[in-house]
């Protein structure tokens, strides 16, 4: 199957240009500021439950979701805020969901780990590791049956790869040639433990090697590289080809969840990765290419801060949901007229 692999690589993707790069920068800042703000809100107990933040992983969400159409399906997991933002879910409603308010994406029912925004193609986020992978296969199958061009993209971490349902899904996706793009955000940690404690196989793209799907490993903190590789994959998937696996090597700049003492993290590695911050890197790259200047950069950050602050204000004013909502949500088909 190395032939198929080579084919995917030879096909040129759409190179990143000034306009797209600036849009990516804006998205990454919105995610970064949003996540940092959630961290603060968590310490103030304004958001409820467990918060898994994606600071440091913004590049993957931005470069991938920004190339998708609204009708394309995205499935995420417990670390979903970045994917939701990049896929176009309104910040106001994400923040309201995190505060458990009635204007939240899921009307306060789902919370951080279960963000869904069907209107923007965010089809679901599951709190059980790898549980979203077979779901994305189902979406891809539905698209094929309907003869559509939509693709299904599923984000998961490297920890999910050791779960049995990952292998079950890979076999089926490969056997049926489903147009699904599996995006593994390999941050080197499954929850709290390093990948080496979970498997002998360092690269996720090697785990799927026996199944012959098109696969590539990229530096997930190099936004231009993710953009370019995903663009190629997307074109293939649009033509009904698949499955494809894009492994993005990345790094969480925060613990597994907010408040996680992160003792398991080697401080040195963290410092090193801080320098690999995807936002800083794109800013450097784009400035050198003449795509944007200091003012553009400053504006992207400023606008993100304004927007996130507005979302916090919006969420704080949103009422808590009425408990009657519960009855409506136990079974489908009971929505009140």
């Amino acid at each position: 199957m190395t032939g198929k692999d080579a084919e995917a690589k030879a096909r040129p993707g759409v190179a990143l240009d000034a306009q797209a790069a600036l849009a990516l920068l804006a998205t990454m800042w919105r995610i970064r500021v949003f996540e940092e703000r959630v961290g603060v809100l968590k310490r103030a107990d304004e958001v409820y439950g467990l918060m898994h933040l994606s600071v440091g992983q913004e590049g993957v969400a931005a470069a991938i979701c920004s190339q998708l159409d609204v009708a394309d399906s995205v499935y995420s997991g417990h670390r979903a805020h970045g994917h939701a933002i990049a896929k176009g879910a309104p910040l106001n409603r994400i923040m309201a969901e995190l505060m458990g308010r009635s204007d939240g994406l899921c009307r306060g029912f789902g919370g951080s780990m279960h963000l869904v925004d069907v209107e923007h193609g965010l089809m679901g986020a599951t709190g059980v590791v790898g549980g979203n992978i077979p779901l994305a296969l189902g979406s891809a199958l539905a698209t094929r049956l309907r003869g559509g061009k939509e693709v299904a993209v599923v984000f998961f971490g490297d920890g999910a790869v050791q779960a049995g349902h990952f292998n079950e899904s890979i076999n089926l996706a490969s056997l049926w040639g489903l147009p699904v793009i599996l995006v593994c955000e390999n941050n080197g940690f499954a929850e709290f433990t390093p990948r080496s404690a979970h498997t002998n196989v360092e690269r996720v793209s090697d785990v799927v090697a026996p199944y012959g799907l098109m696969r590539e490993t990229v530096d997930g903190n190099d936004v231009a590289a993710v953009w370019e590789a995903f663009g190629r994959f997307l074109e293939l998937a649009r033509r009904g080809e698949g499955p494809l696996l894009l492994e993005c090597l990345t790094y969480r700049l925060r613990g597994h969840y907010e408040g996680d003492p992160t003792q398991y993290r080697e401080a040195l590695a963290a410092t090193e990765w801080q320098q690999r911050d995807p936002i800083t890197r794109l800013a450097r790259h784009g400035t050198a290419a003449g795509w944007f200047d200091a003012e553009d950069l400053e504006r992207a950050e400023r606008e993100a801060r304004t927007e996130v602050e507005a979302a916090v204000g919006f969420a704080r004013l949103s009422p808590y949901p009425d408990v009657e909502l519960l009855e409506e949500l136990v079974y489908a088909g009971r929505r009140k007229p």
Partner: peptide
């Protein structure tokens, strides 16, 4: 299903 939002 246990809802997220505290009052619920």
């Amino acid at each position: 299903t246990i809802p997220y939002s505290e009052p619920m």
